[in-house]
Each structure stands twice: as structure tokens, then as C-alpha cells.
Design a protein around this nucleic acid. Structure first.
Lengths: 328, 328
DNA sequence: GGCTCGTCTAAAAACGTTTCAACACCCTCT
DNA sequence: AGAGGGTGTTGAAACGTTTTTAGACGAGCC
């Protein structure tokens, strides 16, 4: 038995007793073409009756562009926070007819995939070379920078991430700490988020007239973390902002290993509020990001870039909350 | 300035002095059509010279199927193990001209995305309804089941995951434990991997004539884990296989909270060897999965399903290693 | 009535592939 | 000498959209 032929727009046209062109006009809500209300109804009825779904391939071929938004993600573990962000972003854009697709990237294979998909937009959570970005733009793909500072190009997430660092610093300072440390991740793949957060901490210190934070890398290893804790103590640092909860937890382990205790000897604050933060010894004080707000901002940027009429860019003021436990 | 026109196969044909059909035959290595070696060379030279890349959209339109492999992932945190699996799978399939794309799925929107992409294959790390699977198959998409038991349909990963559970049990038994427990994850979204691993543990116990494992859910919460630890002790259980390292670490926290100590009162073994396993108190004994082997097996299944000529299915015998630390 | 004008619909031309059917050409066989 | 059978190549027809261009129709105006 032959595979059932696909329902095409010409079938719909026949069913509705109109031409293929009219079907297209109706379905795409073309503005420069007036369609009689009654015709419109008939077309929609036919679509419904036949169960018509347009062929994305044909559409892409004709338009030279698909309805796909490509999310490039670095090959780094994705915590529940990241997953949540992706999910909200997917849902938000889906609502506007855009299909979000993610690609875990380690190498330089972006180009070929991009050519294959001809996506409407690319969101870069992973590093993309400047020339790749230029190529994409030249071909009409809208590129949203999330990764790194992207050499002067605007970066949507930066502002929010600075605020996160700022909140960390503010909390520690409000507890009376004066000499602040910053625990950087050893994994360079997460620099994208690390830089702005550190900037936020710097800002926080500067605004209160405190010395800039003392930055150290904390490897996820007990001895290394222990050494770092000791070094900070030796510098007179009494509280540390950690890049995220994982780093914070490793550091807490180091603190214990050094025979010190948190928060009296060294206070520690993380970011993300991962499930395990509760089990840390002591339970970890941290910053909980509101991913639906972050996602909404990102989705807004994409829609604005695509010049969708319904793109309303609402800057979310409250994208994070402080969760006070016992470590700071 | 008008956007530069795309280089098409007709340009290549003109440059090489042959017809479009010939270009297509050469580039696709069509078997039923003989091509003179000299012509073949000319075509390749022209492709090179003009920098021709075929339009995936046109190809998809014509063939009704794209070169995309869609990875459906549950909206669950992806540890480095999972990321590694995805990366290897991507690389493996890329080598065969297939583009891997992942989709983080929480809802039922698979269908629309699938229709848009017309992927060659779908790999389900997330639940997909039976009828969705049937639809896809009917449309010619090859579906690789990874999630759950999929109602009798073959599942590529099951065998390997059973082996993981088996290894956990074997280690504990070799240490002299007789009454074994199984710490199940509270998150139902990971059942796909949970069921077969538990089956492996059951098998291990049965083969040595031991009673079946006592299964308890361990929520990622200190008190809950503490209660679970006590309950197991009360049942005479002396060692527990945890679904993964996170569960194991939570359980270890529970053991400490209960005033017990591992491994003397309760031995614990995990799966995955996540970075944090080293910091657990005591350092966690666990199973390290070899993701390149697992990915290779998965890639083999996909290629076999697509009937690619170069699909060689090598069953990897050694997909995991025991990492002995101090918790068991 | 003839004219323009506005509103609506339709025919047809792309978009860039793959593949069927046909065709030249040369060689061999009867 | 003509038929038959590979070889290597090609023209043209799909695939399912969107969009341009043109046309039909009725109404209003001189």
C-alpha cells in the first residue's frame, strides 16, 4: 500500500473552493491583501476538516528561512536552573510560532548545522566566532549574544547576571563583612556567566568603598578547596561569593577540611539554589534566579530582533531572590 | 545591494559542463548510475571552486525527509554524564552526515516539531506516547526507544543499564553484604534508567540466592534521607545501591544525620562518578559509565535503523568501570 | 453608457533538489 | 548489415510553499 499522500494547500483550496493563493493569504494573515470574511471562514473550515499542516520544508525553501530558533549550548552540565531556562524560553517562543531547538556544542560544527536549518534566530549560550556570527547575520539570521562580552555587541543576559553578583555582595556586606573573596569556577566554559557576576560583586564592593574582591579559582577537589580557604583567611577575607552552588559546596568542604567552620571563619554564598544546597554543611545561603523572568527577557529580545509585531520587551526587575540559610 | 544569490547545483553543473542530474548523481554517490571517473573529478572540482553547499530545505522537500536526528530529552538536569553521551552521539552521527539536534521536552509538543523537521530518526530520552511513535513510524521516521520499556518495543539502552545495576550489586555482595537495599530516585522523570538498573540489582541478588533488594525512595532532603537510612537498618539492610550519585550523596548525608557511619553501618554505592562524588563524606564508591561506548551503541542502532550501508553494530562489552572509594 | 477605482481571487513563476525516462553512442553478436 | 545491449549523460517533472502580476466583478461618477 502506497504511503498516504500528504494534505497540501492545494487540497485545502479545492475543498474550500478557492485558489491556493487565497489559502496562503488567509493562513499567513497577509496584511496587504484584503480577504472577504466569508472566504476566510471557508478556508479555515477546510483546513480543520482535512487536518492540513503546512510543509515546513517547502516554506523554508521558498522563504529561505525557517521558523526555527537555534539555541547553542556549551558542553557543560546543565543544572535544573539551565534546564528551566531552556524550557521557559521554548514555551515562550513556541507561543509565537517559533520552534526552539538546542544543540550541545563543543566544536566548530555550528556552521554546517546553521546552513542546514536556516534558523530565524540563533541564541548563543556557547562561544561562536566573530566571523561565524557575521556570516549568519549576512544571511539574515538574527543572532542573540548570550555568551561572553562578544566584543562590544550587546549581550542580553549581562545586565541580569551583574545584578546577581551585586546581590551576593550586598548580602555579605550587610552582614558586616568588609574583605570579600570571589570563588571562580575552574571550568572556563562557564566564563560567560562568570565575568558579569564578578563584575557585579566588584561594583558592590566599590559602591561601599570596600577593596575589590580577592579572586581565586576553586577546583572541585577537596585539597584544592582547602588550600583556597586557607589562602583567603590568610588574606583577611571573611566572606566569599561563589560563582555557583557547586563551587560553593566544594568550598564549604574545603573549609571543613581546613579545620575551619562556616560562616564564623569564612562565610560562603552561592548562586542557583540547587537541590543539594540544602544538604551542604552548613546549609548553603544562595541566590535563586527566577528563570521565567530571565527567559521572558530573552524571548523578548529574540522577538524584537525578528521584528515580530507582538514583541513586547518587558525588562523584569525582579529576576532573583536571596535565600538565606546558614552559610552566610 | 541585493543579497548574493546562493550557489546552486545548476551553477555547479554549468561550471563543470555537465547536467544538473549528473551533479546530483556524483554528489550522492548513487549506486545504480555509472559515472565516468573524469566527469566525477570535474564535478568535484566545480563544487570546490564555487563553494557549493546543497540546500537542506530543497533536499528535504524533495525527499520528504531531512538528515536530522532528533534527540528528545526529558526536562531533567543533565549531568556531565548525560552531556558527554549527547556529545559523543552527536559526533558519531555527524560523521555519517546526520545532524543531531536536541529538544528539551516537558509537554506534548513533540508532534508539531517533528512535523516541522521531518527528521530521519528520533531518539527518545523522554516519554513519547505510543500513538506519537506510531505516527512517526508511519511517516517513515525511524524511532529509537530509550525511554522506559516502551511496551514491548526494543529498547537500546536497557541491556547496558541492567549491567550497571548488576555491577553495583556484585560489588556489594563481594564485600560480604547479604541484605541489599535499593535507593530509588524520587523524580519520576528518570524512571527510564531506574527500572533497568534495579532489574540488574535484582538479578545480582537472585543469582547468589540472596533475598531481593529492599527498595525505598530517597528524596533529596536531609530528614527524609535520614529516615530512609534508619528504616533500612531496621530491616537488617547493610548496603544500598543508589540510583545515581546524587541519590547516594543525599543518602550519605542521611546516614550521618542518623548518627550512623558509612560503610560500617550502611555501605552505599552510586552511579556516574560525578565530580562531587569525591567530596562526599566518606568519598563515594560508584560506577563510572563509559559514555563513548554507550554513544557508539546508540549511534549504531540509529544507523542500522536508517539502513545506512556503513552501520556496523558493535556491542560494547565494557561500558562501565567500578570506582572504589570509601563508602562501600 | 463608458470610465475609473476598489475589492477580491486566480494563474503561474519561483525556491533547489532528486530521479524517471529517454537518448545518444559504441561495441558485440547473429 | 542490422539487432541488441551496456555506458554515460541529460531534460524535465515532481516536492509544497509564497508572491507577483493580472484579471473579474461590482459600484460610483461623469
Amino acid at each position: 500500500m502506497a504511503r498516504a499522500r500528504r494534505v497540501t494547500s492545494v487540497d485545502v483550496a479545492r475543498e474550500a473552493g478557492v485558489s491556493q493563493a487565497t489559502v496562503s493569504y488567509v493562513l499567513n494573515n497577509v496584511s496587504h491583501q484584503k480577504i472577504a470574511e466569508e472566504t476566510r471562514q471557508r478556508v479555515h473550515a477546510a483546513v480543520e476538516k482535512l487536518g492540513y499542516t503546512p510543509s515546513a520544508a517547502a516554506r523554508t525553501l521558498r522563504l529561505g528561512r525557517s521558523d526555527i530558533v537555534l539555541l547553542l549550548i556549551a558542553n557543560v552540565p546543565l543544572g535544573s536552573t539551565a534546564i528551566e531556562l531552556i524550557e521557559h524560553l521554548t514555551a515562550d517562543l513556541e507561543r509565537h510560532g517559533l520552534s526552539v531547538i538546542t544543540r550541545i556544542e563543543s566544536g566548530r560544527t555550528v556552521a554546517s548545522l546553521w546552513k542546514d536549518l536556516a534558523p530565524a534566530a540563533v541564541v548563543t549560550f556557547a562561544p561562536v566566532t566573530k566571523e561565524n556570527r557575521a556570516d549568519m547575520r549576512a544571511a539574515g539570521t538574527y543572532v542573540v549574544n548570550v555568551w561572553g562580552d562578544s566584543e562590544g555587541e550587546p549581550n542580553v543576559m549581562t545586565r541580569g547576571q551583574i545584578r546577581i553578583g551585586r546581590m551576593q555582595a550586598d548580602h555579605l556586606i550587610s552582614q558586616g563583612h568588609v574583605r570579600i573573596g570571589y570563588a571562580a569556577p575552574a571550568d572556563s566554559r562557564v566564563r560567560a556567566f562568570f565575568d558579569p557576576r564578578l563584575a557585579g560583586v566588584r561594583q558592590g564592593c566599590a559602591d561601599r568603598g570596600l577593596p575589590p574582591p580577592s579572586v581565586r579559582e576553586v577546583v572541585l577537589d577537596a585539597e584544592a578547596a582547602c588550600a583556597a580557604a586557607r589562602a583567603w583567611r590568610a588574606d583577611g577575607v571573611t566572606a566569599v561569593c561563589a560563582f555557583n552552588d557547586e563551587v560553593a559546596i566544594a568550598l564549604l568542604a574545603g573549609v571543613r577540611a581546613a579545620g575551619l567552620s562556616a560562616p564564623t571563619d569564612l562565610a560562603v554564598i552561592g548562586v542557583d539554589d540547587i537541590p543539594m544546597a540544602r544538604f551542604a554543611e552548613p546549609p548553603l545561603t544562595t541566590i535563586d534566579q527566577h528563570m521565567e523572568a530571565v527567559a521572558a527577557e530573552l524571548a523578548g529580545a529574540v522577538l524584537k530582533g525578528l521584528e515580530r509585531p507582538d514583541a513586547r520587551r518587558s525588562a523584569p526587575p525582579d529576576n532573583a531572590t536571596l535565600v538565606v540559610r546558614r552559610s552566610a
